[in-house]
Amino acid sequence: MNRHEFKQKVIDYAHSIGIDEIGFTHAEPFHELREKLVDYHANGYASGFEKGTIDERTDPKLSLDSAQSIISIAVGYPNRLPDAPKSRKGERRGLFARASWGVDYHTLLNCRLEKLEAYISSLDPSIEMKSMVDTGVMSDREVARRSGLGYIGKNGFVINPNLGTYSYLGEMLTSYPFPPDEELIDSCGDCNLCVDRCPTGALVGNGQLNSQKCISYLTQTKGFLPDEYRGKIGNRLYGCDTCQQVCPRNKGINTDHHDDIVLEPEILKPELTGLLEISNREFKETYGHLAGVWRGKKPIQRNAIIALAHFKEEGAVDVLKSVAENDPRPVIKGTAYWAVGQIEGDGALDYINERFKMETDEAVRDEMLKGIQEVV
């Protein structure tokens, strides 16, 4: 069996196990990516979630010294939520970004990659392989681009002709010299919608992102959310889809044929006050399978509190006061006091002044004052 026949067998098997798109590239260093990463760090755009050094991220052989090629895979995910519950006064709801709908995509992709590895081994046991999904050192998007799965748009996502930007990406380094695919030559042209519509101006053009300003990143941080972004996140509990929602290349695309991506409307668009009263055990049992809770309960609860302030939800004030008075975590306590001030305005003055006398944490005290002094 020659290399092209081998490659076709792998392609056919990949499609049979739920891999929507598959591409192949060589394992030489990513020289252009290195230049971008140097600028990315020099400009202070890094989120801190990135794995590995610049050398590790751009030289595949540092991950698998026998690597001769890289297989890139893409699995499309839905962007429409059927039967989504309505967010209404007295029952305000938050939202998880679409990449977190269904089972954690790390689990989903790793399952497919493990099957693909086993199949390749059955054809040739001597082939060495190493797979990665997001948490590895390789850039999933750059590998996908060079493998011909799509081009990188101004929003920084890989845009695939069949999946748009709504796809999970993973890759496999192999010691087998698969024939590489051609890169997809395309561009966003004059379209600048994603850059113009980004709520915080995080997209700086040419596919570059200032992660420090990106709502997707901000919703995953654990400290107090910076003041200038509290009015920007709306009801987002995890992630942000704006730059994908406005992309014309996503028009008419909704990949919903995967049986292992199960949509749960009540979980993906949960009632906000319920999130504030949930126990650790209940939270893990209800939301633990979502990729969007990898940072734990605190960021989700902080974002839920900010969302209630965004809605000016008067019906949540009693719950917020209970959280403010009883939660031991300064970030949650302080944000709850801030939200009470935002919702009640002057009506919160007596309550905040009385509680202020009892509070000893300076960060919480600052939030209490901010809540009644500022209006988002």
Results as ranks from 00 to 15, higher is better:
G102A: 11
T165V: 03
D190C: 14
N110Q: 02
D186S: 12
G156D: 06
R197W: 09
L113A: 14
P161L: 05
A144P: 14
E117I: 09
I120Q: 02
V137H: 08
D124C: 13
G207A: 00
D227I: 05
Y176A: 09
L193S: 11
I152L: 15
S100K: 00
M138H: 02
D134W: 09
G94W: 01
L113V: 06
D104I: 00
R93M: 15
G205A: 10
D181G: 07
L113Y: 06
R112I: 08
G201Y: 05
T200G: 13
N210W: 02
Q208T: 04
T221L: 06
Y168I: 02
G150L: 07
L225G: 05
R141Y: 02
C111D: 14
G231F: 14
T174N: 10
Y166H: 13
P179T: 05
T174F: 05
I120H: 02
D186L: 01
S216L: 02
D227K: 14
L218R: 13
V195F: 04
S100C: 02
G231L: 10
R145H: 12
N210C: 06
L108H: 13
Y168A: 04
E182P: 15
G207I: 01
S175F: 08
S211G: 08
K115F: 04
S175C: 04
S126V: 05
L203S: 05
G94N: 14
L173P: 10
Q220G: 11
D186N: 08
S187R: 07
N192I: 11
M132D: 07
I127K: 00
I185M: 04
G148A: 08
D124T: 10
E114K: 11
L218K: 07
N192V: 02
D104E: 09
D196Q: 15
A144K: 06
G102C: 03
R146Q: 09
C111V: 13
G223W: 01
S216P: 00
S167E: 03
F224Q: 08
V137R: 13
S131W: 12
Q208P: 01
S216M: 05
D124F: 13
S100V: 00
E183S: 06
A118H: 13
R93H: 14
Q212I: 15
I152M: 07
T107C: 14
K213S: 11
Y151G: 09
R146K: 12
A202M: 01
R145Q: 14
L95T: 07
R230G: 15
L184I: 03
S175W: 09
R197Q: 09
D186H: 03
D196Y: 15
L113I: 08
P180Q: 10
I159N: 08
G90M: 01
D140Q: 03
Y217G: 13
K130I: 13
A99F: 14
F224Y: 15
C194S: 09
S131R: 11
S122L: 00
L116R: 04
V195P: 04
L109T: 10
K222V: 14
L108Q: 11
G153F: 01
S167H: 13
D140E: 09
D140G: 01
L203A: 10
E117C: 03
A99E: 15
Y105A: 06
L184E: 01
I185G: 11
G148T: 01
V204D: 06
G231T: 12
D104F: 01
K232W: 01
Y168F: 12
S131H: 13
T135P: 08
L169G: 02
S126G: 03
G205P: 07
I127V: 12
E114C: 07
G231Q: 13
L108K: 02
